[in-house]
């Protein structure tokens, strides 16, 4: 019972914190430079990791799909199936997991240290809103970067998959690329972007919340970072199921209207 209460308390606190961030974003004057700095910082810091992950995720999916497609002699569809899976499901999930481990943990540690060394209290006492000054640029930076990184990793993943498909199964790049439009529509791309944005909000929200509310010295910062990493991954898995259901319902509704 205590665990359930603690989880509900945590989710409630997180929801109120994210609401506060959105309200501050709408209410206050936005300073574009720190937001752009954060986007550039997060994107450049995570690009190498995301690029490597993109290549190997694409390669793994090629190996898996080709085993199934070979049974039906339908390997020409490999490019389309592979890209669809990366855009809609695997890409957003892997990128958000990587962001949680890299940027999320860094942000929680940075904000947690600022909290326990009274830097956030000092900002407040100097008449500045810490949510506006510290949280908003990081929050927008992480969400925007997750979208940019998805697009980048998608392109890298397609290239990686194409190379593996060509070398391992002798599928020509034209064949690979030609099948993509049959499986990847604007809706598929929109679904991938939507999921990335939701996961980005989770990574940014949990990391900022845990860091901002850290207490109890170095131990407290360590606790905040661990909690941020575990809870982000847990919430992303739950959100994956919920967004999948939501997009399925949307898709069914749009087909019903079209029919």
């Amino acid at each position: 019972m205590k665990v359930v209460s603690a989880i509900l308390n945590d989710v409630g606190g997180l929801a109120l914190f994210v609401k506060d961030v959105f309200q501050t974003g709408f209410r206050t004057e936005k300073n574009v430079k720190p937001i752009l700095d954060q986007i550039v910082d997060v994107t450049t810091r995570s690009f190498t990791t995301v690029a490597f992950a993109g290549v190997f995720v694409g390669a793994i999916l090629v190996l898996q799909f080709s085993l199934i497609l070979a049974k039906y002699d339908a390997q020409t569809f490999l490019g389309g199936l592979n890209t669809s899976a990366v855009v809609r499901e695997v890409g957003p999930l892997i990128i958000s997991f990587l962001l949680a481990g890299k940027v999320g943990a860094f942000t929680a540690a940075e904000l947690g240290t600022m909290r326990v060394t009274e830097q956030i209290d000092a900002i407040e006492c100097l008449g500045t809103n810490p949510i506006q000054y510290l949280i908003l640029p990081r929050f927008i930076g992480i969400v925007a970067s997750s979208l940019i990184l998805l697009m980048m990793s998608l392109m890298i993943s397609i290239l990686g998959s194409m190379m593996v498909a060509s070398v391992t199964y002798g599928i020509y790049p034209e064949q690979f690329l030609g099948s993509i439009p049959r499986f990847v529509s604007f809706g598929t791309l929109a679904a991938g972007m939507f999921k990335s944005a939701v996961y980005g909000i989770i990574v940014a929200g949990v990391a900022c919340y845990k860091g901002y509310t850290a207490s109890g010295g170095a131990r407290g910062v360590g606790r905040a970072v661990t909690q941020a990493a575990i809870l982000t991954n847990l919430y992303i898995v739950i959100a994956n199921f919920l967004t999948g259901q939501f997009l399925d319902v949307l898709s069914a509704l749009s087909k019903g209207n079209a029919g």
């Binding site: 009274e118 830097q119 006492c125 100097l126 008449g127």
Partner: peptide, 19 residues
Amino acid sequence: LSEMRRSCGMVFQHPALLD
């Protein structure tokens, strides 16, 4: 509250400088 805080200069236990 922001205005009042500006009129109160607070020196913390830690230097609390932004690194």
